[in-house]
């Protein structure tokens, strides 16, 4: 696949078998053992049934039969299930978060994700539709529902957790290897529920710190033609681009949109053509989204805005 292909939904990027987090890795391992155990039990049962159907009547005494029922039907299953319970329960215990862990408030909105990075001892940084996490560090995800129920699910990282309006659910994750992965909404939330995804980028800690520092900076292109058009068409009524006058929090923060690989909440590669189409016909790309269509906007203006957004990296 080309680079372009990698930007779209690549195979394995959103799979519980392509793990990059401790919780998902444990779950994948457990699944493997469970399947193996189930196959062994099924084969043993089949062998027992074949043996039983071929045996002469009275091959087992009543006492032997009762003993077989007691062990194979009672004691062994109880012990196996208890062992499974004892082994798996500690894994259900959430990772303990420390006070100085990076905290990211992820808010599910129809149909995108608000990401608010809150590193210890520094002001927060707002972004959207892309979650970046440092490898090897615990990250506390504070999950909130902005409008309706959503569910945060990155299969390769950890189990899913609901995002409920009015309350904060905490999920502590720990990425184990760098790479670009994907998550998506796992609770039906409206027309474009299936189009509500996001990229997850696990990075080396130093690279993550550098990225966060870059993400924190406002844009320096406020005087560009695209920026003026962005303002003139009223885009700032919903979106924020730090460094310009646009500071609304209704729609996704677009400050460093150019640094993201996908757009429209993880459903399209970030290209000028895709941006132009989304700017002018958002409801066609994402039915039910709150962003209206702008048929009156000329293609030149939309292209200028798209190019400007792309330069803000």
């Amino acid at each position: 696949m080309s680079n372009e292909g990698d930007k779209t939904i690549g195979s394995g990027r959103q799979s519980a078998f392509t793990t990059f987090g401790t919780e998902a890795a444990w779950l994948a391992g457990l699944t493997g053992w469970m399947v193996l155990g189930a196959v062994i039990i099924a084969l043993a049962l089949a062998a027992l049934m074949v043996t039983a159907s071929r045996s002469r009547e009275g091959a087992l005494t009543h006492r032997q039969g009762m003993r077989l029922v007691l062990w194979a039907g009672g004691i062994v299953p109880s012990v196996v299930l208890l062992a499974l319970l004892v082994v798996t329960l500690p894994a259900m215990r959430p990772i303990r978060a420390a006070g100085d862990d990076l905290r990211v408030t992820v808010t599910g909105e129809q149909f995108w994700w608000r990401m608010r990075y809150q590193p210890a001892g520094a002001p927060p940084v707002t972004a959207a539709n892309e979650l970046r996490v440092p490898v090897g560090r615990d990250v506390v995800l504070a999950l909130e529902g902005g409008d309706v129920l959503h569910s945060f699910w990155v299969p390769g990282l950890a189990g899913k957790m609901d995002m409920v309006p009015g309350r904060t659910n905490t999920l502590v994750v720990h990425a184990t290897r760098a790479g670009r992965f994907r998550g998506q909404c796992a609770e039906f939330c409206g027309l474009s529920h299936a189009l509500m995804a996001f990229d997850v980028v696990a990075m080396a800690p130093a690279a993550f710190d550098a990225w966060l520092a870059a993400e924190r900076r406002p844009v320096t292109t406020a005087a560009a033609a695209g920026a003026r058009l962005f303002d003139a068409h009223g885009c700032g009524g919903c979106h924020a681009v730090r460094g310009t006058g646009a500071a609304s929090a209704i729609g996704p923060d677009l400050t460093h949109l150019g640094a993201r690989e996908t757009m429209a909440a993880g459903i399209q590669p970030l290209t000028t053509a895709n941006l132009v189409r989304f700017i002018r016909e958002a409801p066609a790309v994402k039915p039910g989204a709150r962003m209206p269509a702008y048929p009156q906007m000329s293609a030149q203006d939309a292209t200028a805005i798209a190019r400007w957004l792309e330069t803000n990296r």
């Binding site: 004892v86 215990r93 959430p94």
Partner: peptide, 13 residues
């Protein structure tokens, strides 16, 4: 089986 989770989960979340 009921007691095991209560003893091993040890978390209110």
């Amino acid at each position: 089986f009921t007691a095991a989770p209560a003893l091993l989960l040890t978390d209110c979340r």
